[in-house]
Amino acid sequence: MTLPETNTSENVPVVSAALDRTKSPSFDEDVLLVDRFLAGDQGAFEQLYARYHDKVFAIARGVLLDQEEAADAVQEIFTLVLRNLVRFDKRSRFSTWLFRVAVNRSIQQARRARFKYKHVELTEANDRVQPEEPEYADPKVHTAMQKLSPNDRALLVLFYWDELSLNEIAESLACNVNAAKTRLYRARERFRLFYDEVEDE
C-alpha cells in the first residue's frame, strides 16, 4: 500500500521539522513523557522514574548521608513530582526542575533530621545498634561531608556526583550562574578544609 502522493509530499516537511526538533540541543525528550503522562499514560511516569531514580537518589543520599533516609526521600520526591507535574511550565528542562525539587526536599529533610538527632537523649543514642559494616566506601569523604551544611552538600553532589554544569546547577538552585559558581567554590573550599582535618585526626 502506498500513501497518496499529495499526502506524502505534504508530510515530508512536517516529519523533517519534527526530526530537526529532536536533534536540537534545546529539545527535551522528557517533556514528551510528561505530556504523555498528563494525557493519561501512567507508564510515562514510570519511565521518568526509572530514568532519573539514580540521580535523584544520589542527590538525596549526598545531602542526607543516609541510605535509608535517601531511599524514603526519593519516594517522597517523586510523589511530589507526580502531584505537581501539571505545574511544570516547560520553561526549563524537566531534569533541572526535578533536581530542584530533589535538592529542596533533601535539604529540608536534612535540616529536620539534624534537629531530630540533636535532641536524641544520650542513653537512647547509646542504645542504637551500630551497623555491622560501614555504609560508606570512603569514611573520610563521609566525615567531611557530614561537617558541611546540607546546602553545601547539595552543591557538591550536583557538581561532582550528578556532573551537572554550572548552568544546570544554577537552574536547579533557582539562582544565576555567577551565584552558583561562587557558592560551589565556597562549598568546595569548605569541603577541602574538613577533608584535610579528617586526614590530620
Binding site: F45, Y49, A50, A58, Q75, D138, W161
Partner: peptide
C-alpha cells in the same frame, strides 16, 4: 575520592515507585 563516593547505579537497585504521604517539613 569525592567523585568515587557517588552511589553507583549498579549498587542501587531501583525500587518500584510507590507514592507516599509527603511529610510537611
Amino acid at each position: 575520592r569525592l567523585k568515587g563516593s557517588r552511589p553507583m547505579a549498579e549498587k542501587v537497585q531501583v525500587p518500584k515507585f510507590r507514592p507516599t504521604a509527603v511529610q510537611s517539613v
